[in-house]
Design a protein around this nucleic acid. Sequence first.
RNA 1: CGGGGCGUAGCGCAGUCUGGUAGCGCGCACGGUUCGGGACCGUGAAGUCGAAGGUUCAAAUCCUUUCGCCCCGACCA
Length: 561
Amino acid sequence: MRFRETLIPTLREAPADAVAESHKLLLRAGYVRQLAAGLYIYLPLGWKVLGKINRILREEMDAIGAQEVSMPILQPAEPWQQTGRWQAIKEEMFRLKDRTGRDMCLGMTHEEIMTWLAAREIRSYRQLPQMWYQIQTKLRDEARPKSGILRTREFLMKDSYSFDATHEGLLRSYKLHEGAYHRIFRRCGLEFRQVESDTGMMGGAVAHEFMAPSPAGEDEILVCPSCGYTANVEVAGSVPPAAELIEDAPGEVHTPDKRTVEEVSSFLKRKPSGFIKSILVITDKGPVLALVRGDQQMHEKKLMKLAGPFRPATKPEVQEILGVEAGFIGPAGLNKELRIIADPVLQTGVYVTGANKKDYHKKGVRPGTDFRPEWHDIHTASAGDGCPKCSAALAAEKAIEIGNIFQLGTKYSAPLGANYLDENGKEIPLVMGSYGIGPARIAAALVEQNHDKNGIIWPESVAPFDVEIIPLASGKATEAAEEFYARCRSNGIDALMDDRDERPGVKFKDADLIGIPKHVIIGEKGLKEGVFEFKDRLTGQVEKLPPEDVWEKVKWRKPIS
RNA sequence: CGGGGCGUAGCGCAGUCUGGUAGCGCGCACGGUUCGGGACCGUGAAGUCGAAGGUUCAAAUCCUUUCGCCCCGACCA
């Protein structure tokens, strides 16, 4: 393509609203424009990049035997009502009525519709397994769109769904996707990790996320440098550093007005790890007392999986339920039966905790003896904690979620009646999996991971063009550049020809900003010596070479590793 | 949804406190000189000051309401 004829509106300065590096650069380099909060226009360069990513997605999905289909974005409410998600999902779903008053929604994902189709078309075990995928627009009324194209209300998603006769079949489909995802992200040139993850509202037992490490990421993951254990902080296990053991004799201490662990620990001159933090929460089934060690943070998602949705108790509620002011509550010597969930790190040791008496704490409390809780991991794993598998020190990093895979089981097939007949003529629900990848997130994560102060540095596989040709104004240079450009075109090399009447500096700056990996600079100077210049955007290295050698370099493509 | 910030030309900003009828840089158009890392000179076009209502002789500026966008948190199928 010719620069002059293409919409590539580069900006010298980034709009003040942009904060994330990928957002700034994609805006400045002319890849995207914002229409409204969480709604983006993809300009020619941006759309080409998405196209490249989508091609890789299709190739790898096709390679594992998945079939591409296209599902409506506008959907009737019924399937969603049948699976219960019409109720379970709240403001995040765009809802509307058609002219007859029928409830409709805009698809935020396609489990319901894919399963609806499966319910009608799959009848026999002989048809199984099936894997269907699409690259389709999703709409979610996000509470907070942010970071440019990282979190938007409308976005493209490659979503696929597997239908198997058995759980073993599901595992096979899951593994196939796992492998495809690894190949996809590797081909895109992304640094990524696969982590254990929460299944969330998708349901099902097992799920993994694919994460691209980046400070712009919204997720935190824990990584063991020794054994390779990796998990989202939402599910990550860890062994916090051992606490100093102080064998107090049981007894009360006067702690006037000292409520939080910080206050009491500095008052008693004890480390926070010698305390039990008691948190009263209100669930649908009543109050629950959650306990973590004083130096630890409770992880709400972990507790939510055990106790269901909850909220912290208000101060009056604490008074009413436990008969003591908040700040002095503890698990030992409660005035009533209460569900107590304690983090296993408290299984050993002797602790200080609230005495359930205003202005008093209790010393020498032995969990398991002085009170009998349910033991469940509810603390937040953090950097420096021991790995749950090998006990080496864990590291924490921020990451962008670029894909996820879920073993759904029969969560959708059962309510939607997606059954098949087995060899014995028995009707059995399909065992399903679902698998997503966000192409725009791949693009944004790539920019986050691959840029310098001058601009973007795309990997060859997803760059909008293979090469940018930069003639420096002069009749001869333009002529030579045109010839080179024509040669690229007739050999299937996608070249961007900067045919603008601009000064060299402007062309160089724009080329670096746009980030095509190879630049060919053709100037009067070089022509006199009989050379073109080949610049590697990544290293910045420029080589003066005979045109034929430059051609060889432009033609050469990095093999897929 | 809670907290904070910001809306003035395509982009970045000043002007708002202390009311007097809108300005700077970049970009854009035209002419000229330039031409290897965002050139220079000259001329010019472009703004309902987010919107509505109010106060006032007079509102970008003061008051009220409202909309939008960004950030932190909550949420995130």
